[in-house]
């Protein structure tokens, strides 16, 4: 009975909330939110360089821990000195750390892959954006985007563009009414959960009140200035 009471007190006490706050704000968890948002948003979001670096640094430390521990486990003398119970704890911790490492690696990779896929969809647009608004792509993303468009252009040129008159060979012409550069559809509807009362926004022809904890399907452009107040689902 005593134990039970104690565990109830513990479960509502500071200990629980501390885990919650610490886990949900860990770098890998925050990067996960950016991955989810990146998947649903129609254009590239601000590159999370610092956050990604933090996750990678943490992954390296976890990898070092795994290497060290695995080496210890290979050393028979060391294993014997540990005792059975400690050995079991060491092994399960190793398993937990390995799992955490794989999860963080998955998130980091998924984040990068999503961004690359988005660059693949509209490479000329992002190249143009990078000039006016540096920071939308990371350096390696820019190099990738640049090479990609060059390769594509030279392949098209060799394939068929060289048969065209010179003035029709461009791939990024903006003369006349229609630009050749495809742009993202900023009005793509997305689903968001509002995390702070935002108030009333004019969306299309209507005024919509965005209330805390409300879940809404609405066009991305309506909330693109409020990304810190909403979670994209």
């Amino acid at each position: 009975m005593n134990l039970d009471l104690e565990s109830i007190i513990n479960s509502v006490g500071r200990r629980g909330t501390r885990t919650r706050a610490e886990y949900t704000t860990a770098p890998a968890q925050r990067l996960k939110q950016w991955w989810v948002a990146e998947r649903m948003a129609p254009h590239l979001l601000e590159y999370q360089l610092d956050l990604l670096n933090e996750v990678i640094t943490n992954c390296r430390s976890l990898r070092d821990y795994i290497e060290e521990t695995s080496l210890t486990l290979l050393d028979e003398a060391a294993v014997e000195s540990l005792g059975e119970e400690t050995l079991r704890d060491v092994k399960i911790k190793l398993l937990l750390v390995e799992t955490e490492l794989e999860r963080a690696k998955f998130v980091a990779r998924a984040y990068k892959r999503t961004r690359m896929a988005k660059i693949d969809l509209l490479p000329y647009y992002y190249l143009q954006q990078q000039e006016s608004q540096s920071g939308i792509m990371s350096k390696d993303e820019w190099v990738y985007c640049h090479h990609r468009t060059e390769l594509e252009a030279s392949s098209y040129y060799k394939g068929f563009l060289n048969a065209f008159p010179t003035e029709l060979q461009g791939l990024t012409d903006e003369d006349g009414h229609i630009s050749m550069i495809e742009t993202p559809d900023m009005d793509k509807p997305v689903v968001v959960r509002v995390n702070t009362d935002i108030g009333t926004l004019k969306i299309g022809s209507e005024e919509v009140e965005l209330v805390k904890n409300g879940v809404y399907l609405l066009r991305f452009s309506a909330v693109s200035d409020y990304l810190e107040f909403v979670d994209i689902l």
């Binding site: 565990s7 501390r18 885990t19 860990a26 968890q29 943490n58 704890d89 398993l95």
Partner: peptide, 29 residues
């Protein structure tokens, strides 16, 4: 199970028969 440092976050020590909150993946393992 003593306290574990996962670098980005810390899992406080688990004590036998004391309720603790952990991520689901950790609970499953």
């Amino acid at each position: 199970l003593s306290r574990m440092d996962f670098k980005g976050w810390v899992q406080p020590a688990l004590r036998a028969l004391r309720r603790s909150e952990v991520p689901l993946w950790l609970a499953v393992i």
